[in-house]
Amino acid sequence: MSFISYLVNGVSLGGIYALIALGYTMVYGIAKMLNFAHGDVIMVGGFTVFMTMSLGGVSPAVAVLAAIIVCTLLGVTIEKVAYKPLRNATPLAVLITAIGVSYLLQNLALLIFGSNSRTFKSVVPVKAWKVNDTLTISGEAITTIVVSLVIMLALTLFINKTKIGSAMLAVSEDRGAAQLMGINVNRTISITFAIGSALAAVASVLLCSSYPQINAYTGAMPGIKAFTAAVFGGIGSIPGAMVGGILMGIIENLSRAYISSQIADAIVFSVLIIILLIKPTGIMGKKYNEKV
């Protein structure tokens, strides 16, 4: 039964990675940049929940809503202030700027909250599910799996069924041709950052509820892993980020359980390297070439 428990927790962790990976992959696909600061938006989301609940005394639901609002505004602002002026700059300049934004957010958090980890109180109201004598699934795991699956489904519908979604797909494929259709590229990029950051806020709440600690670097490691998951799935591909994130969580958790918790991360990255050697575009990367 322990296998099932490891698997379930792996899917749960993977759901969090997937939500974060979606932000990376959408921004990469549409704005053609690597938003290195995306992981730190998670940290800001976590601190927003922590502060509003512990100091503001608000209910968990209000705190989560506050985190979504704060992260969305933060993501859109970062894009406007730091990345938009570099729209035609070299990718390297944009990457360095993104790394700078990441450090800025981490250092601001250090300045405000210090370097000690704070204990995060889980906001999940769901009770653990005792399946039988040997298998119990935590409320956090159940919530994370359900919430991430619902969000992924909703996002898929949004992208494929709405006009804004079609604009996002068009911009990600050919910015110039999209403009000729009358699509406002700057607005589409803003919307993408807003969605990605809102997903990061949800991920932050789930992450901090499952692993109840928070400090200035909380977002860094999940950020890197989720980025890896996005590459793993095929960067730019939305279903790829979902599949990549969940697989990543499963591989990480099973490695931790059955091989070694010390080298679990190394195993995850080795799997990634092997996959990329076999299929350089990632598991769900673009299949066909452009026809001229």
Partner: peptide, 18 residues
């Protein structure tokens, strides 16, 4: 410069985006 990964119909609908 058609949108390669989208269907014919989706391409046409994008033409009427405005």
């Amino acid at each position: 410069r058609v949108f390669q990964s989208l269907t014919v119909l989706a391409n046409l609908k994008l033409g009427a985006y405005t």
